[in-house]
Each structure stands twice: as structure tokens, then as C-alpha cells.
Design a protein around this nucleic acid. Structure first.
Lengths: 194, 194
DNA sequence: TTATTTTTAGAACGAACGTTCGATTTATAA
DNA sequence: TTATAAATCGAACGTTCGTTCTAAAAATAA
């Protein structure tokens, strides 16, 4: 059966991607050498090029996979909602949960958005925009002002959600639900309301 | 008079820093070569090293100057306020105004926080923390919940403010005051209140 | 087993990197 | 004008970079 071989191949590939995410999250894309990634992935330098055409393709694989997951999981969550408030909660929960469970990939997505070029960039951009489109729609439902104000609000929300990788400490901010709840509270009622 | 010479030196230095900010904002710190910076600054490659010990020192100079400015300007603004709401408005206005007037430096500060190491990193961190401390204090005054919830709210605000460099388009989002106002509205009242 | 394909390893490539150095040009002071 | 200091330059250094190539090892199929 060729399925067994494929499964093994894909296990190895995703283990290399995990190693790559870790190194790139820490050193940045330009700062992370293919040699670093190879070492972390327990493979020879040239072995990397059996799985990827180039360093760029590696970054592309990480980002495309992450954003696709983010989109499909959010769609699933939104199915179970009936009010705009519930949908906003779904957006926030989904984002934070993905971050906690895939910290390195998340960091690479947020911090290395502009490191891709050409077709790789355009491909990921499309998925990114699909994700942002879902979020924007949810914010729009909730918003009472003009559409352009709602779009600004969505961008502010996005900033709050994405910035988390800069300060989150799993030791100190253990409870992810507290994070989500407080974020939801702020964006529903503002800072100074209960 | 030696003052004249010093003034000329500092003009050149800050013109090189401006060029460096532009290149680093665009290519990232690791992606921007000293040769790129030299070309943009209309100076020879080795000429850079007459003004800076190293590439790291260059990044340090950019960040330290930017955060110091951010801190001192915010302090000035806070002097003219009397209510917590006014102080929050001062924070938001200050941040966005600095961004619009120093887009490249801002971008370098937000995006290359982790590119510094050792003493350079610790020095900038201290100024960064002073700035965040001011913001946190303002949020705390306004917040009715626990202190840890207020700290989270401050981090969410910080995210919204810092994320702006990822989407702001001077052609499309011309009016900076509209930006500030909408941000203030969201963080005072939430998304769904008028 | 042998034959074939998939996966890994080592050595090497030219290019680009940050930095240094000595000489040269430019500006100030005498 | 000559002497001194400040500013710039071009060439070169040792490293590290992404990538390629050929051969060897490991796994599968015959």
C-alpha cells in the first residue's frame, strides 16, 4: 500500500514544519538559517530540500496551513451561534485557542506576513483576507455606526488578538478562557463598564 | 565654535537614522543590509561605521530615540488632562500621531523589538516599560474590575494601537483624528454602543 | 535474494553578509 | 598657507548564507 508511505512522508514533513516554526518564531525568517531548521528537525541540511523547493516554500507551507486551519475552525464555530454576541465570542475564542495550541505557527503568521513574495505571498494573502472577512462580518453585525467605523473596529480587534504573542506567558496567563472573556468584555462594553 | 560642527554631525547622523529606519521598516532588521542603509543614506559602506559601532547600535539608536520621544510627549499631553477619559484620549492620540509622523521608526520599534540583544535590549526594554506603565496607569484609573483585568485591557489596547502599521494607508485613512476617535469610542464603550 | 524507489548525507558553489583598515578627501584652525 | 582634525572612501577579511550535486543508505517490491 502506498498510503503507508505517504503517511510516513507527511509525518516527517509536518515534524520538519514544526521545527521550522519554532526556529523561525524565535529568530525571525531572515534570522533563521536553513541549517538551524535542519538541526532542529534532525535532518541534514540538504535533506530539507527533499521536502521543500526553497526556504520560501517552507514559510509558505507554515502560513498557508495555519490560516486555512484558522478559517475552517472559525467557520465550524460560527455554525453553533445564533446571536452577534455569540459570534464575536466565537471569533475571540477561536483566535486565542489557536494561538495557545500553535504558538510558533501563530507567531510566524503574525510576524512574518511580509516575508513572503510573489505567488506565495498572494496565495496566503487570499486566505488571510478570507479570515479577516469573516471577522469583519461579525463585527459589522454588532456595530451600530457606519460601515467604515465598523471596519476600523474590526482592525482594532484584530490588533488586540494578534498582539497576544508579544506578551502571553503560559506560566502567568495560564487560563485562556479568562483571556477570551476579558477581551470579549472590552470589545462589547468598553473598558470602564462592568 | 564647535557647536556648529556638532550640529552638522547630528544632522548627518539623524539623516542616516532616517534612511536606516526606512530600509529596516521595509526589509526587516535581518533583511536590511548595512550596504542597503548606506546606499539609502548616500554614504559609503564603511562610512556607516564612523557613526555607529555596529548594525545593532544603529537599531538601538532608532528604538531608544523613538520610545523616549513617545514617553516624553505622552507625559506632556497627560499634564493637560483632568478626567480618566481625557487621559485615555491623550494616550490614543499620542500613539497614533507619533505613528503618522514617524511611520518608519514606529514600524521598526513594533516589529523589531526582539532583534536587539544584551545591553541594547535591556536599555530599550526599560524605556518601553516606562511607556507601557503610563498607559497601564491610565487604563487602571478607568477600569472598574480587578487590576489583572485592567492589565489585560491595557494589553488589548496596546495591540490595537501597535497593529496600525500593518494596515494604515495614508491615501485611504487620511484622517488620523477619525482613527483616534473611533479607537477611543471602542475602548470606552465597546463595539455595539453608540 | 535482487531490483527499484524513497530518503538521507557530505562536500562544494558563488553570493552576500558585517566589519576592519589604511589612505584620501574635506573642513576647521593656526 | 600650512597644520590638524573630521569625514568619507574603496578594497579586502573571514563567515555564513541558500542552494545544488552526486553518492550512499534505507525501505519497499520483485
Amino acid at each position: 500500500m502506498t498510503t503507508q508511505r505517504q503517511a510516513k512522508y507527511e509525518k516527517r514533513l509536518s515534524s520538519i514544519l514544526r521545527a521550522a516554526s519554532k526556529v523561525i518564531a524565535k529568530e525571525g525568517f531572515n534570522g533563521a538559517s536553513v541549517r538551524d531548521v535542519a538541526a532542529k528537525g534532525k535532518i541534514g541540511l540538504s535533506g530539507i530540500y527533499y521536502y521543500f523547493k526553497s526556504k520560501d516554500e517552507m514559510l509558505y507551507a507554515i502560513q498557508q496551513h495555519a490560516f486555512s486551519t484558522l478559517v475552517s475552525q472559525l467557520k465550524e464555530r460560527l455554525k453553533d451561534t445564533s446571536t452577534p454576541e455569540e459570534r464575536l465570542k466565537a471569533v475571540i475564542d477561536n483566535h486565542f485557542e489557536f494561538f495557545v495550541q500553535n504558538t510558533d505557527e501563530f507567531t510566524v503568521c503574525v510576524h512574518e506576513m511580509e516575508s513572503l513574495t510573489g505567488k506565495y505571498f498572494r496565495d496566503v494573502l487570499k486566505t488571510r483576507q478570507e479570515y479577516f472577512g469573516l471577522v469583519r462580518k461579525v463585527v459589522n453585525e454588532l456595530h451600530s455606526g457606519s460601515k467604515s467605523d465598523a471596519d476600523l473596529a474590526a482592525l482594532f480587534l484584530f490588533g488586540s488578538l494578534n498582539w497576544v504573542y508579544m506578551w502571553y506567558d503560559p506560566e502567568k496567563n495560564a487560563d485562556i478562557n479568562k483571556l477570551s472573556d476579558q477581551c470579549l468584555r472590552v470589545f462589547l462594553n468598553g473598558i470602564n463598564k462592568t
